[in-house]
Amino acid sequence: MESAVTQTGGFSPGVAARVRLVDGRRVFVKAVGPEPNPEAPDLHRAEARITAALPTAAPVPPLLMALDLEGWVVLAFEDVDGKMPAQPWQLDEFHRVLAAAAELSVLLDPSPIEAPTIADRFGENFQGWRRLSAASAEGADDLAWLDPWARRNLGRLADREAAWIAAAAGSALIHGDLRADNVLLTDHHVMVVDWPWAAVGAPWFDIVAMGPSVIMQGAPDAMNLLDQHLFARGADPEEVTTVLIAMAGFFLHHSVQAPPPGLPTVRAFQRAQGEAALLWVRERTHWR
C-alpha cells in the first residue's frame, strides 16, 4: 500500500478508505470488527455476498476481495472516481439519481439473486406507529415530542402501517438503503454502493425509502418530483402512501431509542428523516 485516505459519510463504525497500491491501482477498502457494534460485521458479510452475486451490468463497484478473520471483515472494491451528490441537492443530480434508480429497478426485476423478502428484512422494524401507540396507551411515553398532527392521527397511522407488507411486496431486488451517501456520481454513471440491506420487493420501494433524506437535504421541489417519478413508474398511489407511513413510523420510533453501539449520530439523522417523511405523508393523505 502506498497511501490511504479515510472517507467520511455513512454510519458504519468501521474503516472506510480509498487506497493506492504500490503498483498504482486504486481500491476502496472497508473493514469492521466486533467492537463497538457486534452487528456490523454481519452487515459487511451480507454486503459481500450480495455484491458478488449482482450482475456485471449493475452500476455497482465490483467486489475484489472479502476477508473474514477473527471477527473482522475486510472488503475491497474497485475504486470509483466519483463524488456524492451535492448537499443541498442540485436539481440535475437529483434527476440523474432518480433516472438511475428507475433503470436499476428494471435491471433487477425479477431479482437475479436470492435475497430476503422485504417483509423478512424490515418486518420487525416497520411497526413504529403501533409501538408508539402502545407506549402512549401504557403511559410509557406521552408523545409530547411528536408532531401534534401525528398525535391526532396516531390510530389512523398505526392502522395503515399494518398493511405495508402487502403494499411493498414485489419481485425486484431493492437496495433497501438508498441515500445520497450510498451514491457516487461519475461523469457518465450513477454508481450505487453499500448493499447489505438488499431485499426482494416492489421496484419503487427505494424511491420511497430515499425520499425522506432527499426532502431533509433540501432537494428542490422534492415531494412533487418524487410523486411525479412514482406516478410515471406506475406505482399505486395508495400503496406508496402505506409504505411511506410505515417508513415515517420506523424513523420516528427509532429516533427516541438509545443509539446503537458506535453510532452516536444515527438517532438525530433518523429524527430528521422521520419529520421529513411525516411532511410527505401529510401532503399525500390530506388528513386533518
Rank of each mutant, 00 (worst) to 15 (best):
D81K: 00
R121K: 12
A134R: 11
L104A: 06
R131A: 13
L63T: 00
E39I: 10
P88E: 13
V97F: 08
D68Q: 09
Q90L: 15
A101W: 15
W72G: 06
D68W: 08
D92K: 12
W145H: 02
F122Y: 09
A31R: 09
E114H: 11
N37S: 11
Q87T: 13
A31L: 15
P116D: 01
G139K: 13
T117F: 03
A115Q: 01
N37V: 14
V106G: 14
P55G: 00
V29L: 13
A115W: 02
F122I: 02
F94E: 07
P112F: 04
R130D: 08
V74P: 03
D42R: 09
F126V: 06
E114D: 15
E93L: 14
M84Q: 15
F94T: 09
L63H: 01
I113V: 14
P34L: 12
V73H: 06
R130W: 07
G24C: 01
K83Q: 15
G33E: 00
A100D: 08
V73T: 08
A53N: 04
L67R: 11
R49A: 04
N37E: 12
L54F: 02
R45G: 15
P55W: 00
D42P: 02
E138G: 15
R45P: 08
A115K: 02
A31K: 14
P116H: 04
G128K: 15
P59T: 08
P41H: 02
A115E: 00
Q90G: 12
F28N: 01
E35H: 12
H95L: 10
D92Y: 12
V80Q: 06
P61Q: 06
E93D: 12
A101N: 09
M84D: 07
A134T: 09
L107F: 09
D147W: 02
F126D: 01
R96T: 01
L43V: 09
L67Y: 03
R25E: 12
D142A: 07
P112V: 03
W72E: 11
P59W: 15
A40R: 03
P38K: 02
L69E: 11
P148Y: 06
Q87P: 10
A46S: 11
G82M: 08
L63M: 03
D92P: 00
P55R: 02
R26P: 08
A134Y: 10
E35A: 13
V32A: 04
R49S: 03
A101T: 10
R121W: 14
V80Y: 06
T56F: 07
L104M: 05
A101D: 13
S105L: 07
A76N: 15
R131D: 10
P112I: 05
V32M: 01
F126T: 04
M65V: 11
A46Y: 05
E70P: 01
K83M: 13
E124Y: 09
A48E: 00
M65D: 14
T51V: 13
Q87S: 14
D81F: 00
V106P: 15
Q90P: 04
M65P: 04
P55N: 01
D92V: 07
